[in-house]
Amino acid sequence: MDLSNPIVWVHEEALGPANPALEDCPQAPALFVFDDDWIKAQSISRKRLGFLYECALELPLTLRRGDVVAEVLAFAKRCDADGVVTSGAVDPRLNRYASRINRELPLWILDGDPFVELPRPPRLGRFSRYWREAEAVVWEDFRGS
């Protein structure tokens, strides 16, 4: 099902123009929320908040603070949106938020250009194992002289 009037939820892992949700929906109202719970629980310093703020100011975003899920859903309502588009996150906290948003509204999660695309999941555990599989694939795109 296509979303006809989505909003974009931008989170802390994708505060740049390569954010696939922003690239895909340049006309959609977009939101970044300062996560009060995270800031409090981790004692996040003002330096970090200022850095995030300055990143966000260079993107076409509405800025809020509070409960992330409640703020995203309220923003969707305010914009009369029929769904939410966001970028894939690694942080389990952000993925928990995504699941909760998706209980209320359709949520599309878009992935950006990967660093390396491997034919099968690499062996992790130690960097050396991963890099034995990944390094050659990373360099496939290099066109040296």
Partner: peptide
Amino acid sequence: LNALLQQEFPEAQGELSPIRGGRKAA
């Protein structure tokens, strides 16, 4: 910006970093 952050997040310690955020700085 520093003043706004102080007002909105009074519990967040310290000042702004000299390192600026954003794509231009990056």
